[in-house]
Amino acid sequence: MPAIQSPATEEIHPDVALVERAKAGDTAAFEQLVRQYERQIFRVAQHITQNREDAEDITQDAFLKAYEKLDQFQGNSKFSTWLVRIAVNESLMRLRKRKTSKTVSMDQDVQTDEGSIPRDFAEWRPNPEQQYNQAELADILRKTIQGLPPGFRSVFTLRDVENLSTEETAEALGLSVPAVKSRLLRARLQLRERLSRYFRKKQEDQPA
């Protein structure tokens, strides 16, 4: 059985009260929201831009923008989803600026099925944590996710790394739910395929 669970439907999210207070000018309430989400926003920006300095700038800009636009936050979505959406947009803008000759969008390279069709059917034994130490593993995971097109990388990051729901991911990225599902499937399959090169069971009978 898969161990992944979607969060249960909650009643009133504790952020709602904090946002209300922040809107009324309570900076301590806003600071608490910053504390809650600054790490997540940084990771999202780092995942999308693959650049640490950019991610730092984006994190600051995203919170500043949220602070300035707090009145526009309607509460139809979670505050965190709204914040992630701002950070995603800032990140994509940053990518566009960096690659001046190339347009970067959520749609880039996602039309192709390349790499999404399973070819490697070896089991992963022993499991990845047993094959590599933590630093090596982090390095492999980083390199592998970097190879995904931004449109896949963003979906996978929000859904599987940051644990947003499918609906929240759709909202944060400005995509439809079916589009998120289809990209997520292909992102997972492409990562699986690439990781297999590192984690596949070695064939003992093969000459070294």
């Binding site: 898969p2 161990a3 992944i4 089991e123 992963w124 499991n127 990845p128 944590e129 593993l137 995971l141 996710i145 996978f156 599987d160 790394v161 997972r188 399959l189 990562l191 699986r192 990781l195 297999s196 984690f199």
Partner: peptide
């Protein structure tokens, strides 16, 4: 292995 992919991330 897809399950392991999700879990390892």
């Amino acid at each position: 292995t897809t399950h392991q992919t999700i879990e390892v991330y």
